[in-house]
């Protein structure tokens, strides 16, 4: 636990230090649980008593003081799910993950918990893994859910999702094509650019599918980092005209072949992007 990190979370809430729950949510989002040291720092910095903070943290079920696994797996055991066999599913999860409900697997991959109702009783029994809902689960489906989660739930199902389509783009400065058919991402030609952040400078390949956020990079980009993106041909920075509507970071813009521009947020982890097929309006 790093004191500075907690302070920076607090700084983001500087305008509203009275809101304890949003701060706790952010700390939990960062560490996946609420470390005791973080709560102590929070108490010191916001002049709250640790007793009050601890009271709130233990009151709400969504806060956890114990470290949790990478994937949070919630099995609904509400009345409707219960009569449709939620106890069997819970047992099956316990057996397959070799842990008890409420606990985390020793490899810190899964945390299994039961929740009382998710409010979607008609779809029961329901299992939620990392915000992905699985309905009508039976004990055979448990294995599939675990397998899917291990493979990565956020991987976009390119072929199944009709909202996702490929775009071909050029550099907005030198109009060279940025497409790289030799190194596909998402089984489609990637967009090759040069990225720099911190002191690192290397290639980056973005998925050319509009709606997919998959990318490859020579260096691992830490979450929340704002990356500078350059054209590999003319070395000009691909600066966009506007800031990201979601997070406020600058966006990069590229020309779409056939007219229009596409803008993508430069913050790692932010999914802000815009496609303007009519204008070339800078």
């Amino acid at each position: 636990m790093d004191r500075g990190e907690v302070l920076s979370i607090l700084e983001r809430h500087d305008g509203n230090r009275s809101g304890l729950i949003p701060i706790l949510e952010d700390i939990q989002a960062r560490y996946n649980h609420l470390p005791a040291e973080a709560l102590t720092v929070l108490a010191e910095e916001t002049d709250r008593s640790l007793t009050d903070i601890y009271g709130v943290a233990t009151f709400y079920k969504s806060f956890s003081l114990k470290p949790r696994g990478k994937h949070l797996c919630s099995v609904c055991t509400g009345t409707a799910c219960h009569v449709r066999g939620a106890p069997i599913i819970t047992e099956e999860f316990e057996r397959r993950l070799e842990t008890n409900a409420g606990d985390t697997t020793p490899d810190k991959e899964f945390t299994l918990e039961t929740v009382n109702c998710l409010g979607a009783c008609a779809l029961g029994p329901i299992v939620v893994v990392d915000g992905h809902y699985f309905s009508d689960v039976n004990s055979a489906g448990v294995k599939r859910i675990i397998k899917k989660t291990r493979a990565g739930l956020d991987k976009v199902q390119v072929k199944a999702d009709r909202r996702i389509f490929p775009v071909s783009v050029n550099c907005s400065r030198c109009n060279h094509s940025l497409m790289d058919p030799e190194h596909p991402v998402d089984e489609a030609p990637s967009i090759r650019v040069t990225a720099s952040f911190g002191r690192k400078h290397g290639w980056m390949r973005l998925s050319s599918l509009y709606g997919s956020h998959n990318l490859e990079c020579e260096y691992e980009i830490p979450a929340d980092t704002v990356v500078h993106v350059f054209c590999p041909h003319c070395h000009a920075e691909l600066k966009g005209a506007s800031d990201c509507p979601d997070c406020g970071a600058p966006m990069i813009s590229m020309i779409v072949r056939g007219g229009g521009i596409v803008q993508v947020c430069t913050r790692r982890g932010c999914k802000g992007h815009m496609l303007d097929l009519n204008g070339g309006g800078f």
């Binding site: 008593s49 007793t51 601890y54 009271g55 009151f59």
Partner: peptide, 25 residues
Amino acid sequence: AKAIGFRGRGQTRSIGTPFDVRSEA
């Protein structure tokens, strides 16, 4: 002092110090 307070809720509600260690307050 505010050394002790309510913790948890429902059946597991209890009174005590945070983390069940002696409070500095």
